[in-house]
Amino acid sequence: MQGNMVLNPDELGQDPAVGMDLAHALGVRHLEIRTAYNSNALTLDDARLREIRHLADERGLRVAALASPLWKWCRPEAAPGKVDSFGFPTQVPTEDRERWVHRALVVAGILGTDRVRVFSHLSVGEQTESFLDDPLLPYALKAAERAGIQLLLENEPVCTVAEPAPLLDVLREHTGLGLWLDLGNLYEVGHGTAQAVEELAPYVEYVHVKDYLPRNDGMKAFVAAGAGAVPYGELLPVLHRVRPGLPYALETHVRQSPGEALTRGAAFLRRTVPGGLA
């Protein structure tokens, strides 16, 4: 079964038409929406969201997923470190969170997707919240189910659930939750192995692909997928064997020549995922 390749237009800037045109040129028919017009998708008004949908429809593209920032937050009294939350606040009062869940479901509906990403609370020392026991999670899962949408948990290193064991605990406890597997993040936390991917694979509904080279200062130098340290040649065949037909969203985070990095990454994915990608 052949999977689909997905491209996020904001990798090329805040005018979504530019990234959509690259997707069309590369033969990529699916999009992931995170930010546009210098705003997080959750904070855009409905007219702007309909404009994004129209731009996609004009090019024969479909929105495969909403890369929302839900749960990439902490309470206002906590002090998060430097976190890329893509234009969304990282300190969110508990009483405001339910409203953001419902907004994400509305945004997904306007964009025409049935997948919404979530995270697992920012790690902020003693003030860190538990995602597994958060009462908002079962509430959100029920609301999403009513809307015909699935919430997918990304394994994010700055959040509380990033390694295989706690990921499996949450996914087994909350059966409506799927996994938005970021293979680069899995490698970053020391679990970029075939065994880890095989354990997680039954829960995977969506895949993020990005690559980097470790720098001497402990930071990451992002490169085109396949040109870095993440062992995709080992991991992608394992994932495909257990879960064929997945969407693979190509990230880059390469600041100079991101279009070139995405073009190279798309070619790499098509030749590395068994059976190729549409």
Rank of each mutant, 00 (worst) to 15 (best):
D169W: 10
G112F: 08
G265M: 03
R29D: 14
T35Y: 09
L61T: 04
L153S: 07
A266R: 05
A147I: 02
R264I: 04
P274L: 03
A143E: 15
P237T: 12
G259M: 11
P89D: 07
V170S: 13
G109H: 04
P231K: 01
R172E: 15
Q150G: 13
G27N: 13
N185I: 01
D21C: 10
N40Q: 08
R97S: 10
H174D: 10
Q195C: 06
M5G: 05
P247A: 06
L250Q: 06
E95R: 14
A225F: 00
Y232E: 08
E51N: 12
L44R: 05
A104L: 09
D15Q: 14
N8R: 08
S257I: 09
L151Q: 00
R264F: 01
R172K: 14
L66I: 04
E32T: 02
V63A: 00
I110W: 04
D169A: 15
T272C: 11
F131S: 01
R215N: 07
N155S: 02
V18K: 14
G13H: 11
E251W: 02
A23E: 04
E98G: 14
P89W: 05
G259N: 10
V28K: 07
T90P: 09
S123D: 14
A78P: 11
R241P: 01
M20N: 03
K82W: 09
E156M: 03
D15G: 07
R59N: 02
